[in-house]
């Protein structure tokens, strides 16, 4: 592995305990138009202090996977048709709604793309933070609660935290609100934090600062994170492992530097190649032709086949089986071993 620089000081996450185990998870949505196989056989482990990135085009099922993990999938459409989600050994899919409420937001927490969905506009930021602290820690004294709220804001580098407690969400900028949402999520010291497109709505300047903050937060607390993004830049900035998702499934999964250096699925290669940064002005950008398949009308065989320039007859006949690229690096493609896309 050549990602020594990505390891934390001390023991790397690879040696830590597994906090979240997802095994062959399948969550389908039943609608008037048919059955959308939004999550269709996803498996991964997540260790304490580790960040897994999930990347893919819009509609590939990333958000539905995130919602499945906290059991907030759209009702009444969603059905868990297979698999398990083990959090500290307990299967979340088998829990009652009531039991799930005990865990959601506390042991497994989400940061949403749009802070408006996480913050209540009619209460001050201080009220909301203090409420969370009271619920989490029984009934600490008023002073203690306030002190904890100020610390929580200071942890996410909100300037003048004491004054900020009195602000309503609309009195804060987008970047500041996103920090407050981060502080709220961390009050409960969850084992797993899921950030779904955490910076998509932010300007580049704020985005870079926020990702630095997420990294620091993790280094301090050791929380395991799942960062969902359509942007490989966000993944490069934050993740240890990355999974590339396409049409409800992982098509590649491995250590982030390995996947960047040796993309072993043509879809990953295509996504990395479509970035304009290092393309000369006289050259053409590489794009992936076409669009992803309808999740309610999936083709037989490899789901990427219709857009794949390397497809062979076998690709249309059966699902690709996982191919080991290295110890921790897997790709689901019939041609991974030949990798005809490698020399470009």
């Amino acid at each position: 592995m050549n990602d020594a620089q990505l390891q934390y000081e001390g023991d790397g996450p690879a040696h830590r305990e597994v906090v979240l185990q997802v095994e062959d998870l399948r969550m389908h949505l039943h609608t008037r138009w048919g059955v959308t196989k939004a999550v269709d056989g996803v498996t991964f482990d997540l260790r304490a202090g580790e960040t897994l990135g999930i990347v893919g085009e819009s509609g590939s099922g990333k958000s539905m996977l995130a919602l499945s993990l906290v059991r907030l999938t759209p009702e009444p459409a969603s059905r868990f048709v297979g698999g398990r989600v083990l959090l500290d050994g307990e299967d979340l899919i088998a829990l009652s709604d009531k039991e799930m409420r005990r865990i959601r937001g506390k042991k497994i927490s989400r940061i949403l793309q749009d802070p408006h969905q996480s913050l209540n506009p009619v209460f001050t930021v201080g009220n909301q933070l203090k409420e969370a602290i009271r619920i989490h820690e029984g009934a600490p004294t008023k002073d203690e609660t306030k002190r904890r709220a100020i610390d929580a804001l200071r942890d996410v580098q909100v300037p003048e935290p004491e004054r900020r407690l009195k602000n309503y969400p609309h009195e804060m900028s987008g970047g500041m609100k996103q920090r407050v949402v981060g502080a709220m999520a961390m009050v409960y010291t969850p084992s797993v934090l899921i950030a779904d497109e955490p910076t998509t709505a932010l300007d580049v300047t704020i985005q870079a600062q926020y990702l630095t903050l997420l990294r620091d937060l993790q280094r301090r607390t050791g929380v395991a994170m799942i960062v969902i993004s359509h942007d490989f830049g966000v993944i490069a900035e934050t993740c240890d492992q990355v999974a590339v998702m396409y049409a409800g499934r992982f098509v590649e999964h491995g250590p982030v530097a390995e996947v960047f250096d040796n993309p072993s699925h043509p879809y990953t290669r295509g996504l990395l190649d479509s970035h304009p940064r290092y393309v000369g002005r006289g050259e053409r950008l590489r794009s992936i032709p076409g669009a992803p398949p309808e999740l309610s009308d999936l083709p037989a065989g490899c789901r990427f086949r219709a857009r794949c320039e390397h497809a062979v007859a076998a690709c249309g006949e059966s699902d690709p089986t996982p191919v080991r690229v290295s110890n921790q690096h897997t790709a689901w493609c019939f041609r991974t071993e030949e990798a005809p896309w490698a020399d470009r």
Binding site: L6, V204, T205, I206, A208, T212, A236, E237, C239, A257
Partner: peptide
Amino acid sequence: LLASRLALHPSERGEGAPVIGE
């Protein structure tokens, strides 16, 4: 603005991010 662009490889992580607030 230029320095805030995200890394395109994990080895360049954290190189940008000038702390200039909002």
